[in-house]
Amino acid sequence: MVRAQRIEDLEQLLAQRGQALLRTAVLLTGSIEAGEDLLQSAIERLLRQGRRLEGDPEGYLRRTLSNLATDGYRRQGRWRRRLLILQAEADAPADATAEVDLRDALMRLLVQLPPQQRTVLVLRYWEQLSGAETAKLLGCSEDAVKSAASRGLRLLRELAGSWQYAGAHQQT
């Protein structure tokens, strides 16, 4: 009975906030399917710890999404190889759609970033959290957040730089 009530509460929460949570999960993972899996994992954890529903279930889900994204993907260790490939394979845009292409390329690169950098960028630029809020949510220092954000942005800027250079080079 209690479990059924808990599921109903969660259904209600997801009806109101599900899309926002899923959008964050999609950004953390890079695809709708993986985002759904990630959100489902977070819900599973929440179901396991039912008492937290009485507190701030959305906050718990957000924290779990970030932590799962950071921990789960850290273990895979695939990003480094994929990042190099993505950089090597980035094609230069040749027309006025360059900015749109660059934006898409940035999103592809975002997905390939190391988990902590990606999570920090999503929380800072998507969730609009401050450095302190991000640090609290991830359970790390504010310096670690700053460092991860600056390293992530640097990589994105490098891509943007090489993109623009390549675009200009191709047009000459």
Binding site: I7, L10, E11, L14, A15, G18, Q19, L21, L22, R23, V26, I32, G35, E36, L39, Q40, S41, I43, E44, L47
Partner: peptide, 14 residues
């Protein structure tokens, strides 16, 4: 991104 449907039940089943 669509509104997630049935995720809670899927999570419970999983």
């Amino acid at each position: 991104v669509p509104v997630p449907r049935g995720l809670v039940h899927k999570a419970a089943r999983a």
